[in-house]
């Protein structure tokens, strides 16, 4: 496909170093914000609107997500950039539908996980963060979850890279693991920024934990673990079904799929080891957080 261009100059090593630095800074901002929020458990959370905690959560996670986008977006090949809007539309259409119904799931990451499986962890992370930012034009409450969405995209890409989509039964397992990490990272945002959840069914679960005497953060984390585990397992399974239903010609057009043999089936296609497919190997935030 349209990986390194034959007519345009390739980026200078200094630019590559600067982008890598931005990526590391973004991952560090997300990780540091999370650690700060969990260690300090700001005391004003229920004593009044915990706006200091809300500001720390908002600014830290958003800055991290924006840094990741700035680092990754210019490095993606056109074939991946063109797929990102498609993924966003799938996220928004399915998420808007499920979010307002009485099911304690979100299913708002199908497009993100699809991109991550086809184009790698960096593309997945950028898609997750961009999805939250573009979606916030219709629904501003998803904006603070940009970092969590980026993390989910990155983890899905890593799962694909290490072959978890080669066996059908491993995809939901990878979804479970991603759901645990994603839920734990998103819970402080829900707790400190909104003081609750954005859906009625998830709110009922939080209320049940609260009436057993949990703190708000503990109750929302437990709710997130229940919902996100199931949610991501379903999403990963749906994406596995979709990816295997695509004809080989469509799925093998992505260098990431060919190079890391993401999908099961007769490999040994001659281009599987082609060295010139150099895109989408940039590692996202998952390693640091």
């Amino acid at each position: 496909m349209s990986s390194p261009s034959l007519t345009l100059p390739s980026p200078a090593p200094a630019a590559v170093r600067r982008r890598r630095l931005l990526e590391i800074l973004g991952a560090l901002a997300i990780a540091a914000t999370y650690v700060y929020l969990v260690l300090n458990q700001p005391a004003d959370i229920t004593g009044g609107p915990g706006s200091a905690a809300a500001l720390v959560a908002l600014s830290g996670f958003l800055a991290g997500a924006v840094l990741l986008i700035v680092a990754v977006l210019p490095t993606l090949p056109a074939s991946t950039v063109v797929l990102i809007p498609v993924a966003l539309v799938l996220n928004i259409v399915l998420g808007q539908f499920v979010g307002s119904t009485l099911v304690p799931f979100y299913l708002d990451a199908i497009g993100t996980v699809l991109i991550a499986v086809l184009a790698g962890p960096a593309a997945g992370a950028a898609t997750g963060a961009l999805s939250s930012i573009v979606w916030s034009f219709f629904n501003p409450t998803v904006l603070p979850f940009a970092a969590g969405a980026a993390l989910i995209g990155c983890l899905a890409g890593l799962a694909a890279r290490y072959g978890l989509f080669r066996r059908f039964y491993l995809a939901p397992v990878a979804g479970f693991a991603t759901g645990i990490i994603g839920g734990v990272v998103s819970a402080p945002v829900a707790a400190f920024v909104f003081g609750g959840t954005s859906g009625v069914a998830t709110g009922a679960i939080v209320s049940a934990f609260r009436s057993m005497g949990d703190t708000l953060l503990a109750a929302i984390t437990k709710q997130a673990l229940i919902s996100d585990l199931m949610d991501k397992a379903i999403v990963f399974t749906v994406v596995a079904v979709l990816v295997y239903a695509l004809p080989r010609r469509a799925s093998r057009q992505f260098p990431f799929v060919r190079r890391h043999r993401v999908l099961a089936g007769k490999a040994a296609a001659p281009e599987a080891t082609r060295p010139d497919a150099t895109d989408a190997t940039v590692q996202g935030p998952g390693q640091a957080s």
Binding site: G47, T141, G195, V200, G203, S207, S211
Partner: peptide
């Protein structure tokens, strides 16, 4: 949905 959820979470159970 957000307002309803906040009402359920804090209106029905607020241990503090």
């Amino acid at each position: 949905p957000l307002g309803l959820s906040l009402l359920i979470v804090h209106g029905l159970s607020f241990p503090e």
